[in-house]
Amino acid sequence: MGRKFVDCRQIPSDVKCTLALVADTEDEVLEAAVLHAVTVHHHQDTPELREQLRGVIKDGSPSV
């Protein structure tokens, strides 16, 4: 099983966030990404947000 990640640097934002989240499963990365999006970027936890975040989850690890 490979790792999954989401990298805030690849998502346009006024915050200029540099956080990357990595986990063994897509669901684990998604839950962490939703929490981050809500607390840092002030998004609402909606099905649309979850769908958008699921779409940017990638296999492997973020580049340095």
Rank of each mutant, 00 (worst) to 15 (best):
M1T: 08
M1Q: 04
M1R: 10
G2W: 02
G2M: 07
G2L: 06
R3V: 05
R3G: 05
R3F: 06
K4W: 09
K4M: 14
K4R: 15
F5G: 04
V6R: 10
V6H: 07
D7R: 12
C8H: 10
R9D: 13
R9A: 15
Q10D: 15
Q10Y: 15
S13Q: 02
S13N: 12
S13A: 01
S13D: 14
D14P: 03
D14G: 13
V15F: 12
V15Y: 09
V15M: 05
V15S: 07
K16M: 00
T18K: 12
T18C: 14
T18E: 06
L19V: 07
L19W: 03
L19A: 14
L19M: 03
A20R: 11
L21E: 10
L21D: 06
V22H: 13
V22M: 05
A23G: 12
D24M: 04
D24N: 08
T25K: 02
T25S: 06
E26H: 03
D27L: 02
E28H: 15
E28Y: 10
E28K: 15
E28A: 02
E28G: 14
V29T: 05
V29F: 09
L30Q: 10
L30E: 08
E31Q: 03
E31R: 06
A32F: 03
A32C: 13
A32R: 05
A33W: 04
V34G: 10
L35D: 14
L35F: 03
L35Y: 05
H36G: 09
H36T: 00
V38R: 01
V38N: 14
V38L: 05
T39K: 14
V40N: 02
V40D: 07
H41S: 06
H41Q: 00
H41Y: 11
H41A: 04
H42V: 03
H42P: 02
H43E: 13
H43D: 10
Q44N: 01
Q44V: 00
D45R: 06
D45N: 14
D45E: 14
T46R: 06
T46Q: 09
P47V: 00
P47W: 02
P47Y: 01
E48Y: 04
E48Q: 11
L49T: 09
R50K: 05
R50D: 01
E51L: 08
E51H: 11
E51W: 11
Q52R: 15
Q52L: 08
Q52P: 00
L53K: 10
L53P: 01
L53C: 06
R54A: 07
R54Y: 01
G55H: 05
V56K: 06
V56I: 08
V56P: 07
I57Y: 02
I57K: 03
K58P: 11
K58Y: 07
D59Q: 11
D59G: 01
D59T: 09
